[in-house]
Computed example of a mutant assay.
Amino acid sequence: MAVLSRLDVQSDAIVAPSNDFQLPGYETLELSTQNMIADAIKYGINYQVLDENEQIIKLTYGTHVEYIKEGNITRLDSALSHALMENKIVTKEILRSADIKVPFGYEFYRIEDAIAYFDQLPSAFVVKPKSTNYGIGITIFKQTATQADYEQAVHIAFENDDAIIVETYAHGTEYRFYVQDNAVLAVLERFPANVIGDGIHNIAQLVETKNSDIRRGEHHRTPLEKIIIGEVERLTLSLQGVDELSIPKQGQRILLRENSNISTGGDSIDRTDQVSSHFKDIAVRVAKALDVTITGVDIIIEDFTTESDYFVIEANQNPMMQMHLFPAVGQSRRVTESLITLLFPESLA
């Protein structure tokens, strides 16, 4: 209501929105961009959508102009820094040089070379594309894999990139740290796409029911993403001895994926206030090592309440914001508003 009133929309002309997370009239934009616009309006900043497909907006406050792409790509970070973060091998080398713990792994440019590495694999490992985001093409093996399963994972990864990484699996729980301007603004525990059995419905039906949640959608227009049963999901199910037509027992949790990305149907829990400052400091060190203002740092942690073992598995150049705005469980962290005030400090006066 506050946002619409700034647009001089009369209250009797307002139709109640169908949900409490999208900005009416802008539902075709990514949810983070919708909320960037809402926060810009809140601070009296003019806005213009320059390219809906590329998610580029122009913000103006007096003579001050800023451009934002996909929620948080701004002039504050260089194209070189983004290119370094996009390359997971380079990222790991930079972080290792800064005495930040990262998993050990190998890079492959040919399928046959990756497959030939099978006999040297550790008991638990990850196969993933070298440069993609959002958990696309990632397969995680927490226990010893058959050669057939490994080869399938290699093919899936190469379908999404021209190079892949095979690295040691880091045991623990994964957390996303949203870093802006040398401070951690939000921490989210992410849980892989899953369903819980009722003893009646099969896995495909349980997925359909879970996807009916209004918070789940596609293409980052909603807080959570729908679960899609594809190659990776079917492989993950087979490793548990089930398929999409299997009927789980009452209360039995079935994973559709091992990677915990929200983009691939995962769930989210805000942990900002519970995570030890030790790990927040590590996330800030990652941002400084990569020379970026904004990044999403993924850290596998054994015990997030104390200085336990950890591995930084990734730094994201365009981290999702909506999962912090609208976590499935826990407090909202208004990271879009924090970016608006960082770009336009004069709007606070």
Rank of each mutant, 00 (worst) to 15 (best):
A13N: 05
A16Q: 11
A16Y: 08
A16S: 13
A16T: 12
S18D: 00
D20M: 05
G25Q: 01
L29M: 01
E30M: 06
L31Q: 01
Y43V: 00
Y43D: 02
N46L: 09
V49L: 04
L50A: 10
L50D: 08
E54G: 12
Y61C: 11
T63E: 14
T63F: 10
R75W: 14
D77Y: 10
A79T: 15
A79Q: 14
L80H: 11
H82A: 10
E86L: 15
N87C: 13
T91E: 06
E93M: 10
E93W: 09
G105L: 08
E107W: 14
F108L: 09
E112Y: 14
I115V: 09
I115R: 07
A116W: 09
Q120E: 13
S123V: 15
K128T: 05
I138W: 05
T144M: 11
A145N: 07
A145K: 05
T146P: 15
T146M: 15
A148H: 11
A148T: 13
E151F: 10
I156T: 11
F158T: 05
D161N: 14
D161P: 14
D162M: 15
A163T: 06
T168D: 11
H171W: 14
Y175T: 02
Y175K: 08
V184Y: 01
V184I: 06
A186G: 10
A186D: 03
A186N: 07
V187A: 07
F191I: 05
I196D: 09
I196S: 12
I203K: 06
A204G: 13
A204P: 10
Q205K: 13
E208Y: 08
N211K: 12
D213T: 01
I214T: 07
R215D: 01
H219Q: 12
H220R: 11
R221L: 10
P223A: 02
P223H: 01
E225Q: 14
K226G: 07
I228H: 04
I229A: 01
E231R: 09
E231T: 13
L235I: 09
L237Q: 04
S238E: 04
L239D: 10
V242R: 04
L245I: 13
S246P: 01
G251P: 03
G251F: 05
I254N: 00
L255E: 00
N259I: 05
S260Y: 02
I262H: 01
D267N: 02
I269N: 01
Q274I: 15
S276Q: 04
S277R: 08
V284S: 07
R285Y: 11
R285N: 04
I294S: 00
G296H: 03
G296T: 00
G296N: 01
E302V: 06
F304R: 06
T306Q: 15
E307I: 03
D309L: 13
Y310S: 05
Q322D: 02
L325R: 00
A328H: 00
A328G: 03
V329M: 01
R334G: 10
V335Y: 03
S338M: 08
L339Y: 09
I340F: 04
I340L: 04
T341P: 12
F344S: 03
P345C: 06
P345M: 09
